[in-house]
Amino acid sequence: MRGARNAALWTAAAVLAVVAFAAVAPGVLATHDPLQTEVRAALLPPGTEHFFGTDQSGRDVYSRVVYGAGRSIGIGILATGIALVAGLVVGSLAGIAPRPVDATLMRVNDVLMAFPEFLVALVVVALLGPGPVNIAIAVTLAAVPVYVRLARVQTRTLALAEHVEAARILGVPAIPAFVRHVVPGVLGSLSVLATIGIGSSILAAAGLSFLGLGPSEPTPEWGLMLAGGRNVLGQAWWISVFPGVAITLTVVAATVVGRVLRARADGRNS
C-alpha cells in the first residue's frame, strides 16, 4: 500500500514538474509560434511536424497547449494563494473572536459553502464581467470558504494545545503567542489543502474559459482551446482532446499529491 502510494506520488510530481516547466519556459518545449496561422495547414492530424495536429487556422496545437500551461497554472496558483491568505486571516480571527462574531462569520461561510465552487465563480463573473482578471477574482472568491472553515477549526484546536498554554504561563503576551505558536500550525494545514485547491482552481478557470467568459482568441488557454474545437470534434478531435488531457492530468496530479500529503499530515503513512 505504501509502495503504491509512493509510486503515485512520484508519478504525479513528475507530471506537475513537466507542466510547471512548460509554464515557466514554454519556448524550450514548443516547436512553433502558438499564434502563427497557416491556412494551408489547417486541420492537419497529429504527425511528426505537428505533434498534436493543427486547428482551424493552421496553428500548432501542441505549441498552444504548451503556452497555455502558463495561463492556466498561473490562474490556479494565484487564486489558490490569495484564497489561502484570506482564509487564514478570516478563519483565524473567527477562531479567537467572541462567540457572536464567530457564529455570524461561520453562518455566512456555511451559506457560501452550500453552493458548488464553480457556481459561485460563475455568479461572480456574471457580476464582474468576462475577462482573465475577473476569472481569477471569481475563482479566488469561490475557494475562500473552504480555507476559512479549516483555518477556524485548526485555530480553535491549536489555541488549546499544551505548548500554547505553556507559552502563556511563561508570560508570553496573547498576540505574540498566537502568531508564533498557532498561525504556523494553521498555515501548514492550509498548505496541504492548497495543493488540492490548485487543481480545483485550474479546472474552474478552464470551465469558465470554455463558456467564453475568460481570455479571447487567439490567446492559447486550455479552456478556450477546448471550446474552439467542439464544433469540429468529429472532424478534428485533436483540437479539444489534447487540451482536455492536459487539464485532466494536471488536476489529477495535483489532487494525488495533495491527498498523499494530507494522509502523511494525518499520520496515515501505511
Results as ranks from 00 to 15, higher is better:
Arg2Trp: 10
Trp10Ala: 13
Thr11Gly: 14
Ala13Ser: 13
Ala14Lys: 10
Leu16Pro: 06
Val28Arg: 12
Ala30Ser: 14
Ala30His: 10
Pro34Gln: 01
Leu44His: 09
Pro46Val: 10
Asp55Gly: 05
Gly58Ala: 03
Arg59Lys: 06
Tyr62Met: 15
Val65Glu: 05
Gly68Glu: 13
Gly74Ala: 12
Gly74Leu: 08
Gly76Phe: 02
Leu78Thr: 15
Ala83Pro: 01
Val85Met: 10
Val85Cys: 03
Val85Pro: 08
Ala86Val: 13
Val90Ser: 05
Val90Gln: 02
Leu93Arg: 00
Gly95Asp: 04
Ala103Asp: 11
Arg107Cys: 01
Asn109Glu: 10
Asp110Ala: 15
Pro116Ala: 05
Phe118Gln: 07
Leu127Arg: 06
Gly131Arg: 05
Gly131Trp: 03
Ile135Ser: 00
Ala136Tyr: 02
Val144Arg: 02
Ile169Pro: 05
Arg180Gly: 02
Val182Lys: 06
Val192Tyr: 04
Thr195Phe: 02
Ala205Cys: 12
Gly207Ser: 10
Ser209Glu: 14
Phe210Tyr: 15
Glu217Val: 10
Pro220Gln: 04
Pro220Thr: 03
Ala227Asn: 11
Gly229Arg: 03
Val232Glu: 09
Phe242Leu: 06
Val251Ile: 12
Thr255Tyr: 08
Arg259Tyr: 10
Asp266Phe: 02
Arg268Ser: 13
